[in-house]
Design a binder for these strands. Structure first.
Lengths: 170, 170
DNA sequence: AGCTCCTAATTGAGAGTTCATCTACTGCGC
DNA sequence: GCGCAGTAGATGAACTCTCAATTAGGAGCT
């Protein structure tokens, strides 16, 4: 493509392929566990987590999309589904009537609390149990570097809003 | 879940969340690039890569599923689509008539060759350009550890078969 | 007011994945 | 040969995601 084009060298190839394999296995398991035990895919769990960490358990759709690294369209569909399940409620924003506010319901919070331990366990078993503390730190540094390089915030939650109440966030 | 249940500690939380953010951004870009420029999602590109690396450019469906870390069902659908595009051909296995053999066509190989540089460029830009060589090595080690811990082979291609011809594998 | 441009969010179609089910064939024991 | 369990793969429905189009409201200008 560029005049500086290079194939991946041997180390990069191995890293990329191992990374792909890890990702498929990891998210396959995490997703399946959540789907079975909590009735929702991981993307939806994340949305509930974001809401649970915000004052009033409510957030503008656009903010929620940012903080869950989700497209607006995806979020619309997701919240529609979560609303059907009774876990989220949508209300109009009184200040800007274009906007909608998604709010975690009591049932949604309860579902999250019920799902969290199983989810954390599966994350621990599939990821952290394999790694040394040094590797956990390396992984964080790598992920932060990549995300920042792509011009994004690695921790979309920390954008000036106040933090969590419960440690539900897996 | 266990009597040894623990929440994620602060370091683990940060690592997990940064990892999630990186993954979404990374695969979103890689997938979009391939979809736009080559007309296939990354999962399908991987299937073509696996076939291209194998003698005769042909493999039993079940072997192909293993080596692309894919479920059988997914592979069936995927190969059906790839067959429509004329990139893969399916023939019956003469030895075991339950089996089917997927074979990369000349058009499929050409499509792969055409797609490879753009794909490698996007992988480089979204991942490797952000990392030091040491981090590339750390990432590989982490991915290998996790994959092995889950009882799988980080490099499903290297299972005793002979290796690649062209460096198409991004 | 009227017009244009922009932002917020929803909607519907199309594509990919998963799950459960189904067909076809193999291999083994009776 | 017959039955039966197990394997290889395909299939259809349900679900999620993406993309493009659409609705609806705000902001600024004349």
């Amino acid at each position: 493509m560029n005049d500086t084009f290079r194939w991946l060298d041997v180390d990069e190839q191995r890293a990329w392929r191992a990374f792909l394999t890890m990702n498929r296995l990891l998210f396959e398991r995490v997703d399946r566990q959540l789907q079975c035990d909590a009735g929702m895919p991981h993307a939806y769990y994340e949305i509930l987590v974001r809401l649970s960490e915000v004052p009033e358990h409510a957030l503008r759709m656009s903010k929620l999309a940012e903080s869950s690294t989700s497209s607006r369209s995806r979020l619309s569909h997701a919240v529609a589904r979560l609303e059907e399940s009774g876990w989220v409620r949508r209300t109009a924003d009184p200040c800007d009537r274009r906007g909608a506010i998604a709010e975690l319901t009591a049932e949604g919070f309860a579902a999250l609390e019920a799902a969290a331990p199983g989810h954390v366990t599966s994350v621990r078993e599939t990821l952290f149990d394999s790694l040394t503390p040094a590797q956990v730190d390396q992984l964080r540094a790598i992920a932060e570097a990549v995300t920042l390089h792509l011009g994004e915030n690695p921790y979309p939650t920390d954008e000036g809003d106040t933090p969590a109440a419960e440690p539900v966030g897996g």
